[in-house]
Amino acid sequence: MSAPHRDPLRDPAFLADPYPTYDRLRAGCPVQRIPTGSGGHHAYLITGHPEAREAFTDPALSKDTARFFADRPSDRDLHPAISRNMLASDPPDHTRHRRVATRLFTTGRVRALRPRITRIVDALTADWRPGTDIDLVADLAVPLPVTVVCELLGVPEADRATLAARSHELFDATDTALVDAASHHIGDHLTRLVADSPDLAFVRDCAAGGLDRDETVSLAALLLVAGHETTTHFIGNAVLALLRHPEALARLSRSPDLIPAALDELLRHDSPVSVATFRHSTRDLRIGGVDIPAGHPVLIAPGAANRDPATFPDPHRLDLDRDASAHLSFGHGIHRCPGAPLARAEAEIALRTLLTRFPNTRLTVPPTTLPRRPTRLTRGLTTLPLTLA
């Protein structure tokens, strides 16, 4: 196994289109040691689908980043609600947090939310007419999940736009000071909200689940950030994929009842989560025939695993007839995204509205010029200009 000399995940070409890089790395070895950053550090990157599934469920890979970095000096100043949350924890703490989060997004609760989601989409698109130019990201893909998650948390309407902007800044890989400041804005705001609003349904659910106030704030922060960021990218990536595959767009426009079944393939084709957050090995282990020593960071790349040709033949083709249910865009195992049912409902309703009302919508710029978010963790558009038709 030969390791790259430079961090392949920081190359501008990777941020624009990660799939050639993923293909090259996977072809070399589905588990590779790669440099991360410029400080001489390395991580093991997993790009194969069976290897990623195995890693997602291996208890020897810890998500407790505080434990891993405890003896490493850091100049970062993230708010504890951002740095110490369910996503960065192991059982038994993770189990308590996840139990509460899962109850928020049961099938029954999400079904009950669908009329409200539909009303939000209808309100956001009320002024849309054929011939109108819109930015799908700013006009629908951002405000829809932001509104839904903020209503679930009890965030006042006047504060939502600012919190969404700070959430986007958390993923700005080019400015760590901006990221740290954004984390404190979000953490401080939610701390006040939880302290001042003990009767909010979300706060009561957390208390009933045994979470203390700090844990409630950290879960709120995670749901706010993860609850809308990835859904925004899910919607934007899905619409772009359909616009680039006119036959699939026409098919779903004619038969919108096929949209729920198409979501898995849309998620597989261009995952909103490109690289999962850090894990680290708590003991020596072996994945995909590669030995990973104890104490090393491990990165699992759902975006790469979803295009592993050994699992998904002709993986770069959008195929609505493909069984893509094994995709890893929501993760796998105990850390699988508990909000997946809500994200699917939001994307389904948004797509149904767009495709049935404006089946001939077109891009107003070449797809290769569309700007992407400057982060390896998520894959999303900053803008998606369309002309409705």
Rank of each mutant, 00 (worst) to 15 (best):
R372L: 11
L318K: 04
P367A: 00
H335G: 03
A340N: 01
E346Q: 15
R372Q: 10
T353F: 07
G380L: 08
T368E: 13
V365I: 09
T356M: 05
L381D: 06
I349H: 04
R336T: 12
V365N: 07
T369H: 11
E346K: 15
R357I: 14
L354F: 04
F358L: 02
P313I: 09
G333D: 12
I349W: 07
T375N: 11
L328H: 14
T368F: 08
T353L: 10
P359Q: 05
R379T: 03
T369D: 14
R362P: 06
D319F: 01
F312R: 01
L342E: 00
H335R: 14
I334C: 07
T353Q: 12
P359T: 03
L370I: 01
H316D: 13
E348W: 15
R344G: 06
F330Q: 00
S325A: 15
R344S: 05
R362M: 05
R373Y: 13
L355I: 15
V365F: 06
S329D: 08
V365E: 09
D319P: 10
T375P: 10
L363Y: 09
G339D: 06
L351W: 01
H332K: 10
P338N: 08
L342I: 01
L355Q: 05
S329Y: 05
P366F: 02
A345P: 03
P374V: 11
L363V: 15
I334R: 13
A324K: 03
P359G: 06
F312T: 02
